[in-house]
Design a protein around this nucleic acid. Sequence first.
DNA 1: GCGGTATTAGG
DNA 2: CTAATACCG
Length: 457
Amino acid sequence: MATSIVLFTADLRLHDHPPLRAALAEADEVVPLFVRDDNVAAAGFAAPNRLAFLADCLTALDAALRERGGRLVVRSGDVVDQVGAVVAATGAGAVHMAAGVSGFAQDRERRLRAALAERGCALHVHDCVVTAVAPGAVTPANGDHFAVFTPYYRRWSQQGVRDVVAAPRTVRVPSGLASERVPARADVREVSPGVPPGGEAVARTRLAAWLRSGIAGYADGHDDLAGDRTSRLSPHVHFGTLSPVELVHRAGKTDGPGPAAFVRQLCWRDFHHQVLAARPRAAWADYRDRQDRWRGEDEAADDIEAWRRGRTGFPAVDAAMRQLAHEGWLHNRGRLIAASFLTKTLYVDWRIGARHFLRHLVDGDIADNQLNWQWTAGTGNDTRPNRVLNPVLQGKRHDPEGAYVRRWVPELAELAGAAVHEPWRLTGLERARFDYPEPIVDLAEGLARFRQARDRS
DNA sequence: GCGGTATTAGG
DNA sequence: CTAATACCG
C-alpha cells in the first residue's frame, strides 16, 4: 500500500492545494504533516501573534481533515529530522510540499532533498501554491527577475494563473502514527488583544463577504484609514488558508476598478516574492546599496522607542503604531506613513522598523514586509527612492475627518475634525489638557538630514 | 544574434 | 534616476 506525505508550511488549507492533490492521486494513504520547526524559532520568527493565529489555522486544518476521514499529524523539532522519522515509520515513497522563496525555505528544500534521497524517498516541490505565479515564470530579457513593478505587472497579467484545484472529499491517513496534540491559541502568551481568528473556514467566509460587498469599493477606498475598507485577508494569505491563485480567479470574475486594483495588489505580493527568490539576501541587506549611514539603536534610542510606543507627537504615525500593537495588523497606508517616518524623517535603519513589524504583524512575511520596508527606505524597488511622505499631509489626505487618529490615540479624542493632525497648533492652555507628546522632530530638519545623507552618495 | 544606445515610463 | 524595451548597426 503506497503512502505519501504532504508537508504543510505556508499553505494551511485543503482547497486549491496541488501538493495534497498530487499525493492523493499517487498514494492510497497520505500523511498530512505539520512540523513546528525549531529553526523558525531560532531564526527569531516565532512571534506570539503569529503563533496564536497559526494555532487557529492548525486546529481548523485538523478539523477539516477529520471531516474527510483523516487528521493532521503534528511534530516538533528540526523539520528534516521529523520528515525523515515519518518516512521511516510509514515507508512513504514521496513527500509533497509547496515551494518557498526565502533563503530559509530554499535551504529547507535543499536539506530535505538531500536527506530524502538517502532514504530513497522522492521530494516534489510544487509551484503556484504560495504565490499565484511562480518566481521565475516571467523574467525580463536580460535578467533573472524583475526589479521594477510595472513591467512585471504587465507580464504577470498576460501570463495568467493555473486552474483552481478542488478540495478532496476524503483523506485516508495511516493509523497508529504518533502525533502531538494540535497546538491551541490558548497555549500562546502575550498575544495582542485584537488578533483575529485564523483557519481556512474563517478565511473562506471572510473572502466570500469581501467579494460580495467589499471589493467593489476597493479602488476608491483602499487608502481610507478610518473607513478601513481593505480586505484584511493578508493574514489568511500569509498562512495560506487562502490560495492566491483562487483569489486571482474569483476576484477577476467581476469587472470594474475594485477587483482590478485588488488583483494588482496580489501581483505586488508575487513581485516581492520573485525578488526575494532571486535575491534571498535582500531579506536583511540593502537590495540597492545607496551608501546610507542609518542611525541605529544607540544613536537614535529615544526616537526609536517613541516610534515603537506610538508617542512621536505625529498623530497619524502614533495611531498607526498603536493599531499595530493592538491588532497585530496595520492598514497599508498606516504602514507606509509609519515606515517613511522612521526611515526618511528619523533616518533610522529600515531593519529596525522591519524587525518591529515582524514582531507584531500576524501577516508578517519575509518577502512582503522586508521588501516593502526597503521600498520605503529607498534601498529597494521604488523608482523614486528619495520620496518622503509628510506624516501631517498624509494624515489630512487619508484621514480627513481625523476619525482614525481619534480611534487609536484617545488622548486626542476630544479634538474635532482634522485638527487632530496638528495638536501643536492649539494654544498653550488647550494643549496642557492633552497628555500627548510634543513632536520629537522638526519635519524640515528631518528632511534636511535625509537629503544631506543621500547627497553624499 | 549581439551589444550599445535612444526612448519610454515609473507606486 | 534607471529598468525595460525598442531600435540599430
